[in-house]
Design a protein around this nucleic acid. Sequence first.
DNA 1: AGGATCTGACAACAGTTGTAGTCAACCGAG
DNA 2: CTCGGTTGACTACAACTGTTGTCAGATCCT
Lengths: 196, 196
Amino acid sequence: MPGRTWAGTTLDDRKALRRGQLVAAGLDLLGTEGSAGTSVRAVCRHAKLTERYFYESFADREELVAAVYEHVGEEARQALVDAVRDAPTPVSRAENAVRAFVELIVDDPRKGRILLLAPLTDPALTRRGLHLLPVFAALVGEQLSRGDETERRMVAVGLVGALSNVFIAYLDGSLKVSRERLVAHCVKLVLGADGH
Amino acid sequence: MPGRTWAGTTLDDRKALRRGQLVAAGLDLLGTEGSAGTSVRAVCRHAKLTERYFYESFADREELVAAVYEHVGEEARQALVDAVRDAPTPVSRAENAVRAFVELIVDDPRKGRILLLAPLTDPALTRRGLHLLPVFAALVGEQLSRGDETERRMVAVGLVGALSNVFIAYLDGSLKVSRERLVAHCVKLVLGADGH
DNA sequence: AGGATCTGACAACAGTTGTAGTCAACCGAG
DNA sequence: CTCGGTTGACTACAACTGTTGTCAGATCCT
């Protein structure tokens, strides 16, 4: 019972479409204007929809922000998984992963800002503890060869912090360096964190 | 011409005292409730003063936030300078510096949160580019022995990011580890960033 | 005691926020 | 053609924001 069709599309189709527009608008605003500029009204204006449709897809502002963050996070996770698969040596794995991530955030700095900055700046995300960095850190930690449980965890947390900071500096232009050199340095960080 | 004395204190004295109360209240709110909870009204409520006295000492909300941040930043800077002075070897310098910083933010996590998180989360600080981490990073960079200009800069940025992330994880309890071990690990990070 | 000065509570302004509701217009299936 | 689901513009609400202004009363010097 998807309801009767309308202009060739079912109601659910259009609803999903509108949801997509809202998420896209949220991604745009959160990635450029930042958290403060991402209000329900601003998102609706940006998506050229009215508030009514906002609450059709999201219970409140928080849900939208979470959806945007998870959307970007999933994209990044997928990119990393794809990059690491079929890479035989640890060195090539690190290189591929770093390169994939750099490509993602250079192609679209909004996503980098959302991934790295938003969880620190938006109450809706900090309140939920919605923080993918720990998740990535855990993944990294599993790859490490040396040390006991907490040792690996500390190393992973530090490594993720180092990478984040370097990326952020690169993103906002305060670290002027070629992309190749950025990648090379990050690879060195990743490798250095493990085997030393 | 300090004006006539009042209840034993001059006007300027009381004005400075009120300013102190406001900064203290701002520190408390910014370090616990975060940026969103640090409104002019909330600060005044917290300091048990009325808005009138707020604008007696600060032109606007931004000035208060900046004052709080600079207050905490100066405290940290002083603690680091004191810790490093009279430490002969690079190793003892690193150890003392890390220990001093940990003491500062363990004694009072509000200060850690302000120092590490606030510049990322509060528009009043990001807008001013008021970010002490780059300053610290620059200081660290000068201490490094190897590499050319940009190389040192990248290393310093990464190191500061690693330390920040470890501290933040420690602060919010997601990194459960003894203080001694935290210090030891951070020292290792600092030393490892340079001589490898 | 008189009078300048300082204090604190409070109101007012215009703005934005999240969230909910109303209502006329539209559209396509029967 | 008509009727009901769908749309979008709009208003309403209460809560908050930064900021400025008012005004009665307390305080202390002369």
